[in-house]
């Protein structure tokens, strides 16, 4: 896990994969020029977020030339990007691709689809069922797309699978200006969330959020990197496009895990026992 990560805090154009593909190329050029080994784009970076009925019109299969053109660029660096995916049986997923050496290493399909407030992902997307850690030449990465990270179970499963870093592409809308706090309510919550993932799972956390507006909703940016101690290690500006570069260092992960051996003491077998008991008792999970 010693690599230079580049987080592309970009502004995708809604529903226009061609324009967004061109933008991805430009961001990749910039990141490669800076010497990046790993380049991360936000959630649905090829398509934009509030697609609504467009989802079914613009979604791409994994073999589509647009997707494959980006995958091909992973000959030069590992790439994480997001898109609306259509499966062979015509289900639609909010997916992120991890590409390396010109090949797809993994497709993570968003597991937790928010369907409340301003979100309507459950209306358009099918939920992914896999939480599988990526074994990259750079290290082991846990992919969690936006709402996935609001359920600690996903990060914990990656932690158990040996992830060194969590990659969190997001499209987080700005909400909550009605306080005297310096940050938005939604932004504050995300800071706690990313710091908690880093602290509890003693992993680097790479949160790549998008910027720009869609129908009046602002995506606030503020992409960041947390160290395996939970500290904020790098932070992009809010609201503007920015390439955030950060050198990940495996020695810090080791030091964090020596200081408190959370991985060693996780006791997943105990959790399995209790979960199995709870799942067998219909009343236990419904009170």
């Amino acid at each position: 896990m010693d690599c230079l990560a580049a987080l592309c805090q970009m502004r995708p154009v809604l529903g226009d994969a061609d324009k967004n593909l061109a933008a991805h190329h430009q961001w990749l050029d910039r990141a490669l020029e800076a010497g990046a080994d790993l380049v991360i784009f936000p959630e649905l970076s090829l398509h934009g977020y509030f697609l609504r009925d467009l989802t079914q019109e613009v979604a791409l299969k994994i073999g589509d030339p647009i997707v494959q053109e980006l995958v091909a660029r992973s000959k030069d660096c590992s790439i994480v990007f997001g898109f609306a995916e259509e499966s062979d049986d015509h289900c639609f997923f909010n997916s992120v691709v991890f590409a390396e050496d010109g090949k797809v290493l993994q497709v993570h399909r968003k597991v937790h689809l928010p369907d409340y407030g301003i979100f309507e992902e459950g209306r358009y997307f099918a939920a992914g069922r896999e939480i599988e850690t990526v074994h990259s030449k750079l290290g082991k990465f846990g992919l969690l797309i936006c709402e996935d990270a609001w359920h600690l179970s996903g990060g914990w499963l990656h932690f158990l699978q040996g992830a060194d870093a969590m990659i969190l592409p997001s499209a987080s809308p700005a909400r909550g200006i009605d306080t005297d706090e310096p940050e938005l309510t939604s932004q504050n919550a995300w800071r706690t969330l990313t710091a908690a993932h880093a602290l509890f799972f003693q992993s680097w956390v790479l949160h790549c959020n998008r910027v720009g507006f869609e129908d009046g909703t602002m995506f606030w940016g503020g992409s960041c990197v947390h160290s395996p101690f939970g500290e904020m290690a790098a932070l992009a500006h809010e609201q503007d496009e920015e390439l955030l570069l950060f050198q990940l260092d495996s020695k810090r992960t080791r030091r964090a895990r020596l200081m408190s051996p959370l991985r060693r003491d996780a006791q997943p077998d105990l959790i399995r026992l209790h979960l199995a008991r709870l799942l067998q008792d219909p009343d236990a999970l419904n009170n």
């Binding site: 200006i177 009605d178 306080t179 310096p182 938005l184 507006f213 609201q239």
Partner: peptide
Amino acid sequence: ACNVELATSALTAF
């Protein structure tokens, strides 16, 4: 309350 700094930058950008 209203975070006036944030409201200004968000609404101007909007």
